[in-house]
Write a protein that binds this DNA or RNA. Structure first.
Length: 480
RNA sequence: CGGGGCGUGGCUCAGUCUGGUAGAGCACCGCGUUUGGGACGCGGGGGUCGGGGGUUCGAAUCCCUCCGCCCCGACCA
């Protein structure tokens, strides 16, 4: 009899999410620090896997890691008009230190464009100093009204890339390169999360940016989650912080800058894309533990034989598979099966006395939970079989998520259809409305334009709201 | 910030209306039996009842006050 420790998705999707976070032992709400969480080993291990895969891609695309201060002089934040408006309400300030009031308060970084802008202006003199391609892994703080583990926390961990270029075309190329080669590639290839690449509308873009691009994913309740953003900042920050360079013709020019980030929110995307009512599901390429081996025995004699087989089977796995042998002797096998399923380990191998005799093992795949995903296979060729299975699971998860998104997306021709469709997923619509129209729709439907997809149909249509003819299609959805 | 709910062993909660020796289940510890889908028996430890003040012979329970957390709405990676 399974214990019901996880609320089903059908009953309460919100509660299900919180149950997964707790039961998979990913994180705990830090009730003593408003809006913050503690990452527990399982949650942090997933983040480390994400971090590694992203960091590799960031470096492959020519960037270097650096680290800037946590505190930013308050006046810096005030320098770029749109930026101030965007961030002022959610900034935490340090006004007192060393037992004295500070002459100028510091803000705890909500993002680092301003302090990095200050230093870039010192470091950049000539076009020969460009492009400047830096990234930092750090924590930032935004005082949010409502928080949820991973999806929205007051303090969060992310990477923020900051680059400077000689002209708009190079800045734009950088912005798009990150979007495609780093973020979308990581999301789809490693996380098995299909994403829509698009441009943000004026309402939704980063405060201070010229243009913001994003990858948007669909969660299992049909809502959208912005999984990453890449901004072409134009010359806005360069002008505010006087980031200038001398060009070939000995003329002083403002640089063009970009910034881009993904955060621990990706863990939320992971949970809400793949997991089920049995617990977390982690795609094999991301899983800190890909294979768990559960030995089964009744007495010391059996234990010895079983463990000998387990060690023989796993002897070649080091450096090939990320695995764990669960030889805890105070827990029943059934308990372990459920526990590892809860924690999302992609493949489980069971080795019992019968397997020792028959030269077999039981192999279970996490993407098909319970007994249905379990079968008995020969010990011979097990490593290859597992590697093939891991790859099959990776593909199956991506395809399942993609199918789900397609089934919950629809083209809408009228505002009435739009209202209905955003209740169940993404609504694709022709759009020629204004920012004010967009806000009105948000008030009426709670849905926003998630993005203007980079893939456009190319054929004209009628705007869902204004009735004007246009060639531009957008995605409406409710968002996290 | 508005509306609602809740603070009692580690966790989930009962007890509060109607004041009278702080309880249950799970978890934990010990011993024994178990182990192929969340094992069982016996024994055991553990609580300033969110904080402060008041009423009372007596307060988890009634009154005042402060604090915290969760949920639902308006803002956000």
């Amino acid at each position: 009899m399974p214990k019901e420790v996880i609320t089903t998705r059908a009953k309460d999707y919100n509660q299900w999410y919180l149950d997964i976070v707790r039961e998979a032992d990913l994180a705990e709400v830090a009730e003593v620090v408003r809006g913050c969480i503690v990452f527990k080993p399982t949650g942090w291990a997933i983040w480390e896997m994400m971090q590694r895969a992203l960091d590799d891609r960031i470096k492959e695309t020519g960037h270097s890691n650096v680290q800037f201060p946590l505190l930013i002089p308050k006046s810096f934040i005030m320098k770029e008009a749109e930026h101030v408006d965007g961030f002022a309400p959610e900034v935490a300030e340090v006004t007192r230190a060393g037992g004295e009031d500070l002459t100028e308060p510091y803000v705890i970084r909500p993002t680092s464009e301003t302090i990095i802008g200050h230093f870039y202006s010192k470091w950049i003199r000539s076009y020969r100093d460009l492009p400047l391609l830096y990234n930092q892994w750090c924590n930032v703080m935004r005082w949010e009204m409502r928080t949820r583990p991973f999806l929205r926390t007051s303090e969060f961990i992310w990477q923020e890339g900051h680059t400077a270029h000689v002209n708009e075309a190079e800045a734009e190329a950088e912005t798009l390169k990150i979007l495609h080669e780093v973020y979308a590639d990581f999301a789809e290839q490693v996380m098995a999360v299909p994403v829509i690449r698009g441009l943000k509308t004026e309402n939704e873009k980063f405060p201070g940016a010229l243009r913001s691009y994003c990858i948007e994913a669909m969660m299992q309740d049909g809502r959208a989650l912005q999984a990453g953003t890449s901004h072409n900042l134009g010359q806005n920050f360069a002008k505010a912080f006087e980031i200038t360079y001398t060009d070939h013709n000995n003329t002083v020019q403002h640089a063009w800058t970009t910034s881009w980030g993904v955060s621990t929110r990706l863990i939320g995307a992971l949970i809400m894309t793949h997991s089920d009512d049995e617990g977390l599901v982690i795609p094999p390429r991301l899983a800190p533990i890909q294979v768990v081996v559960v030995p089964i025995f009744k007495n010391d004699a059996e234990r010895e034989k079983v463990m000998a087989t387990v060690h023989a089977l796993t002897s070649t796995w080091k450096g090939v598979l990320r695995f764990k042998i669960d030889d805890r002797d105070n827990l029943s096998p059934g308990f372990k099966f459920n526990e590892w399923e809860m924690k999302g380990v992609p493949v489980r191998i069971e080795v019992g006395p019968k397997d020792v005799e028959k030269g077999s093992v039981a192999i279970a795949r996490r993407d098909i939970p319970g007994r249905e995903g379990k079968s008995f296979v020969p010990q011979e060729g097990l490593t290859e079989r597992i590697r093939d299975l891991l790859e099959a699971i990776q593909q199956a998860l991506f395809e399942r998520a993609l199918r789900f998104r397609e089934q919950h997306s629809a083209d809408v021709q009228s505002y009435e259809e739009l209202k209905v469709q955003v209740e169940r997923g993404f609504a694709r619509a022709y759009w020629a409305g204004s920012s004010a129209d967009e806000k009105r729709i948000q008030e009426e439907t709670r849905a926003t334009i998630r993005c203007i997809p980079l893939d456009q149909p190319g054929t004209p249509g009628i705007c869902v709201y204004t009735g004007k003819e246009t060639t531009q299609q957008v995605i409406f959805a409710r968002a996290y």
